[in-house]
Design a protein around this nucleic acid. Sequence first.
DNA 1: GATGAATGAGGGTTCATTCAT
DNA 2: GATGAATGAACCCTCATTCAT
Lengths: 213, 213, 213, 213
Amino acid sequence: MASAAARPQSRSRTGAKGQETAARVRKAALKRFAANGYAAVSMREIAADVGVQPGALYNHFPTKQDILKDLMLAHMGELLAAWDEAAFPADMDPLERFVRFHIRYHLERADEVFISYMELRNLEPDNFDIVEAERRRYEGILTGILETGSAEGRYSVREPRVATRAIIAMLTGIPSWYRQGGRLSKLDIEEIYLDLARKAVAPGNQHIPAPQA
Amino acid sequence: MASAAARPQSRSRTGAKGQETAARVRKAALKRFAANGYAAVSMREIAADVGVQPGALYNHFPTKQDILKDLMLAHMGELLAAWDEAAFPADMDPLERFVRFHIRYHLERADEVFISYMELRNLEPDNFDIVEAERRRYEGILTGILETGSAEGRYSVREPRVATRAIIAMLTGIPSWYRQGGRLSKLDIEEIYLDLARKAVAPGNQHIPAPQA
Amino acid sequence: MASAAARPQSRSRTGAKGQETAARVRKAALKRFAANGYAAVSMREIAADVGVQPGALYNHFPTKQDILKDLMLAHMGELLAAWDEAAFPADMDPLERFVRFHIRYHLERADEVFISYMELRNLEPDNFDIVEAERRRYEGILTGILETGSAEGRYSVREPRVATRAIIAMLTGIPSWYRQGGRLSKLDIEEIYLDLARKAVAPGNQHIPAPQA
Amino acid sequence: MASAAARPQSRSRTGAKGQETAARVRKAALKRFAANGYAAVSMREIAADVGVQPGALYNHFPTKQDILKDLMLAHMGELLAAWDEAAFPADMDPLERFVRFHIRYHLERADEVFISYMELRNLEPDNFDIVEAERRRYEGILTGILETGSAEGRYSVREPRVATRAIIAMLTGIPSWYRQGGRLSKLDIEEIYLDLARKAVAPGNQHIPAPQA
DNA sequence: GATGAATGAGGGTTCATTCAT
DNA sequence: GATGAATGAACCCTCATTCAT
């Protein structure tokens, strides 16, 4: 989509085969980067996964860095697009909407999410800036929700920007430990985190009594 | 076991110089690993930082992996020791105690904390297991606090293990964006996060009214 | 299996160049290993001889060890093949046949022979076993000759296996001192050693009188 | 004895401890050189065998090369001395004397003998020349025996120098395959090789009939 | 006589990348 | 669009050796 490798695509004679190979490269790189880290993955490994010689990768991506950039830009673009298209009941609380969306999306795209956080530092400055801008846009969604909600008295948030980071960090941590088939279903997770998030920003006095000890 | 530098230091005649070099290696590696990632840092770079030839590093650490292991094991050990020695008013709520401790420690040791999360996957299995065990011990502290507090009715937590991860993820995210000298002081941060954490686990009905829209 | 260069060579388009480079690597390694010993030869030296960067060697042989294995397996295979194809008068005594063949072959392939004896210990166990099996096959040829000849009364050999080793050691020592252009021609050598070998296994009483002293 | 490391020994205060360490170094180096080859053995390995730090080796031998030189010179000196002192019945045939002596000595000092043949090329030119001269002296013993015997009609040898090399090569090959405790005793070996050697140089017509086939 | 720490060179190997075919 | 072969740089690590202590 926002991919660098999806070059002008000037109605070349073939295209189909190349498109498919590029997709296989992306898929292999995604798995490898998530598992071992960008710096520890070699072009040879990716090529071997794809079933191709290393040199062939350069027909689809000009450098290794471009594969990473491609994956991260695509991920951010798709995340924002998915939010725009997310279908929730119209009367659902916006925070609930965000929490449910974030958890679902991040549990489904664990690899993309993971490299998006882990490999930021391996992006060259220009690419980093682009991804950062997208990330800020995404965070802005939650900040907006918190600000509006606070203004309307539904939430009580002293620092919406800080709370945004706190909530997103909390939610984004899930895929690092959640394993399908465990005691808790994805829906269980959603409910638990929704509860935590809601209460964290809820208005009202939550005086916690000091322990008796 | 912990490392070459952790030796009894009984052989006083020499030793001192080596101890110091090992310490400089650790320091340089910490900075570099935090900035560029374990896989992207070369022994040559570390040696250059220390002001020594690459081969000399091997007088202090048998492999590059051992430097990483040393840093991560030391960090976890020191974190747990610091908790044991943390001095807080006796009547302070345990959750508050944990939140304040965690934030302070993690803001002071940002590099150690960072590589402890980022480089886990670069640890060889045996070392990984050791670090994981320590991490679970640390999480266990908060889980215990939440369980006790819930049993005494001071908190309301459905899944203490999940809440533990949620709160720790929330807190641990701070050093990734907090910059000293900004609008918010470390104490401000402490108060904001303490508020979020407290409310998230507070008992009582937090019915959030659905938005009017 | 035998080596990268032994591949079917079906892919005619390219391949030719690689075949040739692999051959040059083999040739350079053979000379260097024979002159300085496997352990004392560096891949960089071989690469320099070939006129290529060190890394390029790895397009043809996966490791240095594989070059050695390749050379030694090829040598043993060619030695056995040469014996099978050796053309001698039909009525020639089999021992004479073997002695002449062995001397000729070993004087022509001095380097291969030399590393085959010297570098055995530098072969990894699996490769060692293969080469050893081939060596035993070769020794078996002479042992068979001695056994048959003894049974027919043409030779008198108490321990054919031991005599085999004795004769082969005797013959194989030649290239270590023989220099072309010296007083003795290759044919002279053949005759002298043939005489020694024949007499050593000849039947009849060779009572050597004790010295008068 | 002829050892370079046995330095002037200027009646130093201690001496005893150092002498002993030097001996342990020689012993360890001998085993390692024989097992893995000079080039493949590191000073660190030798030091570890001796139970000392690598630097300590340099108190006893100025370089690794000197350890090799010491071992080889000592071996050749001891070999020649042993021949001079060998006790055999006065009326024993000189060839028998030489064969028995050579086999016995070489089976007892397998490591020394082995490195003496294998590591010649790793000697620096000067040291090589010395060892070569000693070797020629040793070969000269057998050559003299053959020449005298031929002149007296007890043996029939066309080229005593060549026959010398043939016989010595034959005998020297024994330790490479002989294993104690096998079917053949050391004495069996002596008898078999003595028989082969005697017949090989025996006078008289050894017409070997051509095979019937 | 031995240690611990360092040097400077070099070891085998892998890397991202290029390019003629 | 892919291959096979190459480059040039860099990788982690080991080496023989030195030397202050």
